[in-house]
Design a protein around this nucleic acid. Sequence first.
DNA 1: CTGAAAGCGCTTACAG
DNA 2: CTGAAAGCGCTTACAG
Lengths: 335, 335
Amino acid sequence: MRWGLRMVQHRVSAKDVANLAGVSRSAVSRTFGGGQVSETIRARVIAAADQLGYRPNAIARSLIGGKTDLIAVIIAENDSIHNRLLIEKLIAAITHLGKRALVIPATADSDIDESALYAFDYQVDAIVVVGGTVSPRIIDQIRRVGVPLFLYERATGGGTECITCDNVQGGRLAARFLIRCGRKRIAYLTKPRKTFSNIQRREGLLAELDDVGMTLHAEAHGVQSFTGGYQAAIELMSGAPPPDAIFCFNDEMALGALQAATEMKLAVPDDVALIGFDDIPMAGWPMFGLTTISNPIDPAVDILVGRITARLADPAATVEAHLITPSLVVRRTTP
Amino acid sequence: MRWGLRMVQHRVSAKDVANLAGVSRSAVSRTFGGGQVSETIRARVIAAADQLGYRPNAIARSLIGGKTDLIAVIIAENDSIHNRLLIEKLIAAITHLGKRALVIPATADSDIDESALYAFDYQVDAIVVVGGTVSPRIIDQIRRVGVPLFLYERATGGGTECITCDNVQGGRLAARFLIRCGRKRIAYLTKPRKTFSNIQRREGLLAELDDVGMTLHAEAHGVQSFTGGYQAAIELMSGAPPPDAIFCFNDEMALGALQAATEMKLAVPDDVALIGFDDIPMAGWPMFGLTTISNPIDPAVDILVGRITARLADPAATVEAHLITPSLVVRRTTP
DNA sequence: CTGAAAGCGCTTACAG
DNA sequence: CTGAAAGCGCTTACAG
């Protein structure tokens, strides 16, 4: 027979184990499902299972139990080191919880809904969307079947649980510090897309300037990356007069701005001060010493898994909104 | 009723759709499963499904079909930017294939087996392990049920499909270039763990030195990170005499070494040349200009998904070993 | 404590 | 083309 060489055994099922052990399928199910079984039978089942290499089919089991122990992680924004780090820790935490992470990248905005539907198809127990949001129609559909939904770094009107950095406060912290340093021409360097965090950080910056009767000196946009920050900074610093301080949307862009300043022979922080956002590990590297607004990951992940656990345990648990508190980390790109 | 407020609707099943449309469950199954249905019935089913928000239960479906469209991605090593990038692209490619990625981080070596078993429980169609390997016992168990297994950046004796950079060749490329530059005291800066890639890169380095009658000048170990590279470089450069070239296990460690050289007032590349490995984006940043061995991600991911597709289409497909060709990228940390 | 039976939501031969 | 029935691998009342 042609296929004789790679004959694939059928997966072993509870029935096989039951037959070998000389017990009923129920007995097998009970020894693995934590039911009531006598020690004698349990031992026989375990022995047979070991011999056969049996493991309960989680898929079949979930069909009955109503839960899959699957948690969907929909990645709407992975273009920042900070979000990547959060996702990594989140997946680790989910795994540590004894659940499995079904990871679905959604490049475009429209894909987020599609990803949520995929998650839905696999009967996931909960869905977390990182850096994006789901359309109201889908939110409604998800809620109707009682699947908890979590939004990280994106707030919605209401009804959906969200965990986000207090970006407004972060923008204020940056502005306040630059103002206190005596800077007069404060600029905002950011990405073109008006995402939730972008709007909020800008809002905080403007509000704090307004509080002391100042206005934004300039604003420039670039791709959300080192290169984008570099180019936008060149644009900003070519202005007449150039800014004496730049608050950047995130650390990668700030690092690009730092490079631009170096190339334009501008002293940092004397000629121009730089503040980033997130406090990624690289910000602390000695050659950079980037002053930044810390956007701590661990508390966010802790809240996320804590709330997943809570909502899973009690479907009637109230939906909450959580704000992560940012803080200023002063290094060498500010006076 | 207390629970009246948050009454959760039952998920809608094919039966509900069938009832509303006035057809059999089979008809519903056929319209969604690509079977033979008349246009009249198909239209009625679609209408009913839309109204009810019905989506076939992928879990239940897989119980029959024998495939889940789930691909497990077991992450055994995520402590390098390069592997993180590869994992990200791999997950995207799997999703693009119409499959779902079940991502399981395995921090310790022993956890890899456990993770494979979890994957097994969820009846995944294929398993890929990034930067680690599975014990022979589990490999055997996986093979017996015909689940394709792929190992990235880790080779095994035989029988298992592996995709890996030609690390020996990479080590040789680095050594050859440094020798050609006239360097006489070439050191290896690496992590303590003798992982597959570590052993192979070192082997290539030594082989190339041996070819011209040279030996390794020194070797130092540090944690696999910027800081680890920094510290190991300090150790190396405090030697008498210090090396005039250092080949580093990867780019992050090389960047740490670059920082160490700067602090020790050693000119790069005049006093000491530096070569990294992987060619992560940061290596090309203007302030670093790190010479490195490119370990391209895209070909690796392409091969990976191509082979997943092939093995899934034909369970009898032969198992292959794939070598990704590295190349030298000369920037400013070498003459 | 134990087993036979029903059922989770689906698909797929089997008759018609 | 269509529907009733069997079955995927499991769990969970139901009797004994």
